[in-house]
Amino acid sequence: MSNLNKSTTHTLSVYVANKPGVLARIAQLFSRRGFNIESLVVSPGIDGKFSRMTISCTGEAEGLDQIIKQLLKLIDVLHCIDHTYDQSVTKEMGLIKIEVNSSGRSEALQIAEHYGCKTVDLTPESMILQVVGNPEKIDAFEEMIAKFKIIELVRTGKVVMSRGSDIT
């Protein structure tokens, strides 16, 4: 059975030293083992010496287990946690630019309002809608708003945070 057949999307949170080269080392571990990184968010930690990476990737759980162990071996990695099966808070933001003029505008705004979107740019021929939520919500919004012509779509990739006293 190939990796693809039993693959799941996993979400890892990796806390690393904020240094050049760290991302390359991490990306290499994934590509060497045939894992595709679907989204990657990197931002500075509370202490600027460190960075937080949230990595979503697809592949077989067994292979991922080995990748996590290899990640932990990297000198620049402080910790790595698989959040795939826990109840962490998961958020993503999307910006969607649609082609819309005065005739369709109120319907577009109605859909947007249902998903709690903000209008962040408006021209006579287009608008940019900002949607925030878990990735499934953004998928659903994308589907609904697709009745208008989507000119551009940008998603941040998801970020996670553990609930309560658990460490991300």
Binding site: P20, G21, A24, R25, Q28, R32, I75
Partner: peptide, 14 residues
Amino acid sequence: IFGITMPIVKHSYL
């Protein structure tokens, strides 16, 4: 060489 050797070192510095 920092990039080239990445998969074959325990660690590296530039």
